[in-house]
Structure formats: structure tokens, C-alpha cells
Design a protein around this nucleic acid. Structure first.
Length: 487
RNA sequence: UCCUCCUUAGCUCAGUUGGUUAGAGCACAUGACUGUUAAUCAUGGGGUCCCUGGUUCAAGCCCAGGAGGGGGAGCCA
């Protein structure tokens, strides 16, 4: 690296410089200015290039040939700097950069640039999502998001799973997971009509009605029943009018599906998977997690006493990887809720009765108050669960499982799948799905049938937990929600 | 979709019972300052008080409608 010629210097990423501490060597960095501080004798320019949460401090003296450039260097300016790495003469950082040559690649008018060297509200930053990844918080979140995506592939690859690309455009409306976005090339101002005035979708691009997928599961099952064990990891779309901190219209979902697995093994996989991912973050993203932890602690202190988290972010992550998840049946959960203090004091807004779906308040009680750890609920009443879930011998419940996390609620939903073709057809018809719509799904039960299981993990919900953020719009670069598709 | 809260300078926010020319911190400009960490200090510029209508001698403040946003709920991952 000890080159004397500057113009052909290789660019270093700041993360590498902090790791290798190459004191005395000449380097080149490119990045965006975070802050500038000056006095009569010296100026400090803090540069971030996105490689890590830490900034490189550039120390510029007034007698430097490029000192005049300082008047155009503000927060947001993009610069390229060649110079020597030296041991920092101030406290607060181990090394700093003494510039030989300073170049402005792109100015940022300080009167117009929205980001300032101060804390901005998350709501404001959502309005400038094209720039918010330049902040420490969103930089850390997006690097963690990448690390988690990578860890997901690594987890499955290391265990012999195959990444299956299930379709994003789907012709089946049988997935049954809520409202779908329509995909069409028809001219809305001149729709082809049938004789009964309904739209003639035979004229549409695919010759039938098509939508964006709400789940890759049904196709995932086909993969599992051929390749043994697969996972999907792709975008998923729900046209629900959900306005919450936990819902997006476009989100990413991971759906493993394993032939021969029954419910017990499905739970084991889900628990091992989540713990692996969180451990991966702890092992590989410590500086970003430390930054987010400091942020979490500060936010937590602002909350009212009764709403405060007992643990900080790092403690929560450590806690989850080191404790077994609580596993119990829906029926047992109902019993616990019925003998709970809030139930007896009539604090629950919604009724607790065998057969009703558990509400947020009930899930929160179980996870946050009663067990104080992640909970896997199983064996739900069949009436409140999807048609494809394996019916139990009791005739009342299905082999479903929901993994509930503190502060997030359902992070995973899954089940053993119904492999009895007659029961499957009957249940599908009950919810209005015709055999011919899922003929290929039924075929799997007809040819070489076997038990199999799987689940879906909401990627952004995982990100909420790992980053300690509280709004799902802040853990995806460009959120899509009802009435909002900017950028 | 329902409930609820909010909208004042580029950002974060204060603004009393309706009363003269709407404030602060940060940011920005200028100057000062011996190495700063969101540096500090001084001075200065900067406003469609979300929009529309109404009540009133007088509206940032009260009333009605609308728009945008936050939080909670439902639905779910």
C-alpha cells in the first residue's frame, strides 16, 4: 500500500482502516461528510463511507493547499481524500487521516440539504428516505439487514436446504392470506367485457386473472416434496388496509418447507433458525448493534416507567439465544389467560374463550408478562386457521404453530401440512376453494405423498427485534404502506 | 377501516384566559477561539402558524369541513 504516487491510489473502505490500523501508510478514502468543526488552528472533517458506523476524522490545517475548499464542505458533501493514516492526537478515535490531497466530488448546499448533525425524528427521516441511509441509525439498520439476509442463506445452505424461487406473479387466488394486488396489462379505459358485463380476463396478458403473491408456501410445498427441504426468500405483497407499526404492503418473507417433518421438528427448526440469526448478529455486527443499543437505551429512558423495557437491546438478544422458547398448546394458553389477573379484573378488551382467535392483548400477556420469553403456541382450533393445516385426531384442532416474540407478536406462523387428500379437499371447499384451482397442490398428495411441514418468517419483523426499532417502516429501505409508495 | 393524538422557521419544539411587531435550541452566514467529538462563544438573516370556511372589534389559540402524519385496534408475517 505504500505508494508515493497518489493519482492511481486504490480506495480503502473506512471499516478496513479501523480494523487494520495502518499507521504511517498513505491511503485514499471516499465518503460523505458528517460534521465539520473548525477553529483558528485546525479543522476536523468527519467522513462516513457507509462501510461501518464509525467515521474517519480528517485533520486539516489552515496552511494546507486545499484549505480553501473548506467553505464548500458541509454535512452531506461527498469528498475524496488522499493522505496518511496517523495515530489520533485527540481522544475519541484511534486513528485519523492527515490529508495530502482533498477533492470535492459532489457539493451539498447546506441551505437545502435536509440532514443535519443532530438527531432527527424517524417520521421526518421517512420523508427523506432517499437520504436517510446516510444517518448512523439507518446505516446500521441496513448493514444489519444485509447481514441477516446473508445469515438466512447461510443457515439453510449449511443444512442442505435449497433456495427455491417461487413465483411472484400468481394465478391462484387460493392462498387465502388476505387481499391481493392485481397484475394486469388491460386498458382500464377500454376493458374487454364478457356478455354479462364482467371483465374478460382471457384478453389479459396471462389469459387469466393474476395477482402478486401473498405467500410462496403452496409452491414451496411442491419443492419440498421433490428436493426434500427448501426455503423461499422473496418479496410478498398484501393489499390489506393495515396501518400499524408491524405491517407493510410489500415485505420480505422466508418460508422453509421440509418433507417428512412433523410439527415437533417444525418447531425445533423455527427455534434453531431464530436463535442462529440472532447469534449471527451478535457475533458479526457488534459495532452496529452497540450503536443501536445505545439508541435503544436512550429511547427506553424517554418512556413512562410502566412501559419501559427491563432489558436493553443486547440483553434481549442474548436472552433469546440462551433460553428455550416456551411451548404450549392453544388450549393451555386459554387456561392460563382465564386464570390471569387481567382476565379476572376484566382488563382484557376481548373475550377469552376456547375457539376464539387470540388478540394482541392476550399474546402480549403470555409473552411479556406470564412467560417473559418467546412462546410457541400450537394446536389451534381448526376453524381459525388456514385450510392446508394438518387436522389432528381430536377433530377440533390443527397442527399449527405461531412463534410469538415480545414487542412484536407473531414473528413466525407455520404448521404441519394436511397430507390426507380427502380432508384437504373437504376443508378447501369449506373455505370456497375449488379442487381445480389447486389441482397441482392436490396432486402432491396423490403421488408420493408424505407428511411435511413449514413456516413463514416475516423478515422485517425479525429486523424489528434485532435492531430494537419499533416501526416496521424503519427497517426496510423504502416502505410501501396504504397511500404511500414514494421513492 | 375504527379509536385517539398531532401539524408553528430547514430540523426539534415552546407559545398563558383570544389581545400590539410569533419565540428558543440546532442548522446557515460573519467574526472570535491552541485538537474538536452533534465543539464552544458573539452577532445576523430566516415564518402561507397544514388548507378552506366560520365566530369575533381582534384567531397560531375557538367552531366546522378537508389534507398529511404518529400511536393503538382489527387483519396478519
Amino acid at each position: 500500500m505504500n505508494k508515493t504516487r497518489m493519482f492511481d491510489m486504490k480506495r480503502s473502505r473506512i471499516k478496513e482502516l479501523f480494523l487494520s490500523q495502518p499507521i504511517g501508510t498513505d491511503v485514499k478514502i471516499c465518503g460523505w461528510v458528517r460534521t465539520v468543526r473548525s477553529n483558528k488552528n485546525v479543522s476536523f472533517i468527519n467522513i462516513n463511507d457507509g462501510s461501518c458506523v464509525e467515521n474517519m476524522q480528517v485533520v486539516l490545517s489552515p496552511d494546507h493547499a486545499d484549505y480553501k475548499l473548506l467553505c464548500d464542505i458541509h454535512t452531506g458533501t461527498c469528498v475524496s481524500i488522499e493522505g496518511k493514516i496517523i495515530e489520533s492526537q485527540g481522544s475519541g478515535q484511534s486513528i485519523e487521516l492527515l490529508p495530502e490531497k482533498l477533492m470535492i466530488l459532489g457539493k451539498a448546499d447546506p441551505q437545502l440539504y435536509p440532514l443535519q448533525p443532530k438527531e432527527h425524528s424517524l417520521e421526518f427521516l421517512r420523508e427523506v428516505a432517499h437520504l436517510r441511509m446516510r444517518t448512523s441509525t439507518f446505516g446500521a439498520i441496513m448493514r444489519l439487514r444485509h447481514a441477516m439476509a446473508y445469515a438466512i442463506h447461510k443457515f439453510f445452505n449449511d443444512r442442505g436446504f435449497f433456495y427455491l424461487h417461487t413465483p411472484i406473479i400468481t394465478g391462484s387466488d387460493a392462498e387465502g392470506a388476505g387481499a391481493m394486488f392485481r397484475v394486469t396489462t388491460l386498458d382500464f379505459n377500454n376493458l374487454p367485457l364478457n356478455e354479462d358485463k364482467t371483465v374478460n380476463f382471457k384478453e389479459d396478458f396471462f389469459g387469466k386473472e393474476t395477482h402478486l403473491t401473498v405467500s410462496g408456501q403452496l409452491e414451496g410445498e411442491l419443492g419440498a416434496m421433490s428436493l426434500g427441504q427448501i426455503y423461499t426468500f422473496g418479496p410478498t405483497f398484501r393489499a390489506e388496509n393495515s396501518n400499524t407499526t408491524r405491517h407493510l404492503a410489500e415485505f420480505w418473507m422466508i418460508e422453509p418447507e421440509v418433507a417428512f417433518n412433523e410439527l415437533q421438528e417444525n418447531m425445533d427448526l423455527a427455534e434453531e433458525f431464530l436463535k442462529y440469526l440472532i447469534q449471527y448478529a451478535l457475533d458479526n455486527c457488534s459495532s452496529d448493534l452497540n450503536f443501536l443499543n445505545a439508541r435503544f437505551i436512550k429511547e427506553n429512558e424517554k418512556k413512562k416507567q410502566e412501559e419501559r423495557d427491563e432489558m436493553n437491546l443486547l440483553q434481549k438478544l442474548e436472552f433469546v439465544v440462551s433460553h428455550p422458547f416456551e411451548r404450549l398448546t392453544y388450549t393451555d394458553a386459554i387456561e392460563i389467560l382465564k386464570s390471569s389477573a387481567p382476565y379476572k379484573k376484566k382488563k382484557f378488551q376481548y373475550p377469552v374463550e376456547w375457539g376464539v382467535d387470540l388478540q394482541s392483548e392476550h399474546e402480549r400477556y403470555l409473552v411479556e408478562k406470564h412467560f417473559k420469553k418467546p412462546v410457541i403456541l400450537t394446536d389451534y382450533p381448526k376453524a381459525i386457521k388456514a385450510f392446508y393445516m394438518k387436522q389432528s385426531d381430536d377433530g377440533k384442532t390443527v397442527k399449527a404453530m405461531d412463534v410469538l416474540f415480545p414487542g412484536i407478536g407473531e414473528i413466525i406462523g407455520g404448521s404441519q401440512r394436511e397430507d390426507d387428500i380427502e380432508k384437504l379437499k373437504t376443508r378447501a371447499r369449506e373455505v370456497g376453494i375449488k379442487d381445480e384451482d389447486i389441482w397441482w397442490y392436490l396432486d402432491i398428495r396423490r403421488f408420493g405423498n408424505a407428511p411435511h411441514s413449514g413456516f413463514g418468517l416475516g423478515f422485517e419483523r425479525l429486523m424489528l427485534f434485532v435492531t430494537g426499532m419499533s416501526n416496521i417502516r424503519d427497517v426496510i429501505p423504502f416502505p410501501r404502506t396504504p397511500k404511500y409508495a414514494e421513492f
